[in-house]
Amino acid sequence: MKLKATLAGLATVLAITSAPAVAASRDTISIVGSSTVYPFSTTVAERFGKGGKFATPKVESTGTGGGMKLFCAGVGTEHADMTGASRRMKKSEFDTCQANGVKDIVEMKIGFDGIVVANSAKGAAYQLSLKDIFLALAKDVPNADGTALIPNPNKTWKDVNPALPADKIEVLGPPPTSGTRDAFNELAMEGGCAKIPMIKAMKDTDKKKFEAVCRGIREDGHYIEAGENDNLIVQKLDANPKALGIFGYSFLDQNRGKVQGSIVDGVEPTFDNIASGEYPVSRSMYVYTKKAHIGVIPGITEYLAEFASEKAWGDEGYLTDKGLIPMPKADRQAVAKSVKALTLLNGSAL
């Protein structure tokens, strides 16, 4: 008897726990994507929720690539409504989306983020060129007379450029899985190696090799992968004044007094210099939305409108306090207009 009762009890528990789940429809917006966009999408989400009309959207920090995978998995309440990206959607990701039925995608560029090379505020600020960065961190560099590639022999910054101090090269940076690392490789490393005639010549003859050489980061202990946690890098720089670190501008902005940004190609990583595009290592950030979910999940258009309002992403908006570098006004207006009209992303433009 007792066993029967227990079994019946177990069955009820299972029925109770699983029944409402199947029927549950979602009334909160679900956002996934880049950890770089996360501080901004969460700030907007919080303000949006405090408005009182809609529930506060749920924001997951999954990384740009992970977010695209979840976003493109299909249409329906079990899939995410939006994804943040610290680079533009790739053609391959767009094709995956199309194949899974996510046909209509609205793209919104939200602003810029700078990548800074910083050291402890206790030392002197570094003055680097992109070429210095490449020569200090690349796996292979040209030999003295520029005829062949050799494994990077540079041990101190003085070896790279006689104007720099004779301190050991020690750079803490993100691991290869990070979007920050992708952008750093593309903007800083590739920008620096294009300044070297021998490698530049390679670009025309063997593009694949050019990219491999430019984006290869040394693995002999001078570049230290410090994990995805930028706060950790800031703390380590504070403890080790001789080391340099690579992270997003918002962390530099929030930790002034502790760390200082290096001057790259003569440009300081300041708000104005990144906004004007003068600072060479900066990237655009995007938010992608599924059009099919508008009207199914309440509040999506209102959330986009809040994001694209002057009080959020404007020159003095609350997102700038969180480290967002706004686009020029004309661009903001153009993007806001196209988002309002729900203009679809065109796959051939990617």
Binding site: Y38, T42, A45, A55, T56, K58, E60, S61
Partner: peptide
Amino acid sequence: IGMVAFIVD
């Protein structure tokens, strides 16, 4: 399973 998320409510 997506519990690493920004939840206000």
